[in-house]
């Protein structure tokens, strides 16, 4: 178990050593989104009755930051270690593949949550959304960041170059987050896009997370919970199998 703890600690230490880039910068980015979108749309959009647009926007932005940072953490740490070659220190050690998985995934969860809390606290200055069901909030934040952390492990292992990882980020993660209803309710979309959104797991993470704040959502939070948990189980199983096989790590 100490191997796992050490690897987790190493990942956390790495984040701290470059906190400016890993913690502060993402909070700033989220605030910029908030500033611009709320300024432009505040007067025109009311997604849920009686909820200011800025307040509506905050949970989505928080969750987006959680997810993106969870993904960035494991994927960039792994690709850096692979390219610089220092992954060898981990590979030489008697670390079980599941310890490897847990350490990278949980470090991603930790970074996602820290950034999420940072964005949330900073955003309170602009608007104060209620938090009706904090447990739902925490649950979706945990599951979502674990899902993206695990996806980051897969992306980090699969990519051989930084631009491949960037491709993964730009062509998969970004579109899925932006088309998940961070900035709008999917009910305001045309029918085609609405039904398409239902195949996007990010939509369920955001919608469930937002339910925890407003007690209102596009879909039942229980259904979202089932979808997100199911995705996490499948992806975790896949990632574990990948790690066990040594794919692209043990040549």
């Amino acid at each position: 178990m100490l191997s796992f703890q050490t690897l987790f600690y190493k990942e956390a230490l790495r984040v701290q050593k470059v906190a400016f880039q890993t913690l502060l910068a993402p909070v700033l980015t989220a605030l910029l989104y908030l500033l611009i979108f709320s300024h432009v749309l505040e007067q025109h959009v009311e997604v849920y009755p009686g909820v200011r647009y800025t307040a509506f926007l905050i949970p989505g932005l928080v969750m987006m930051a959680v997810l993106q940072n969870a993904f960035a953490n494991s994927s960039s740490s792994l690709i850096q270690s692979k390219i610089t070659g220092n992954i060898v220190f981990v590979l030489l050690a008697p670390i079980a593949y599941w310890e490897f998985f847990l350490a990278y995934t949980l470090a991603s969860v930790a970074r996602g949550l820290v950034v999420g809390v940072g964005v949330y606290l900073a955003a309170l200055w602009f608007a104060q959304p209620p938090m009706q069901f904090p447990l739902w909030v925490v649950l979706f934040a945990l599951l979502g960041s674990a899902l993206l952390g695990s996806l980051g492990v897969v992306a980090g292992i699969w990519s051989e170059k930084f631009d491949q990882l960037a491709g993964f980020q730009n062509f998969i993660i970004m579109p899925l987050t932006f088309l998940s209803g961070v900035f709008y309710s999917i009910h305001s979309l045309p029918a085609f896009w609405q039904s398409l959104s239902r195949y996007n797991p990010f939509f369920y993470m955001i919608d469930g997370f937002r339910y925890g704040f407003f007690g209102v959502s596009d879909i039942s939070p229980w259904f979202s919970l089932a979808v997100v948990s199911g995705c996490l189980l499948v992806l975790a199983g896949f990632t574990l199998a990948l790690l066990k096989s040594g794919y692209k790590l043990r040549l």
């Binding site: 100490l2 191997s3 703890q5 050490t6 690897l7 600690y9 190493k10 230490l13 220190f89 981990v90 050690a93 008697p94 670390i95």
Partner: peptide, 14 residues
């Protein structure tokens, strides 16, 4: 020192 401590930890040495 950090490098060596981390490596010890990977090998289960506290």
């Amino acid at each position: 020192r950090e490098t060596l401590r981390l490596q010890s930890g990977y090998f289960g040495l506290r």
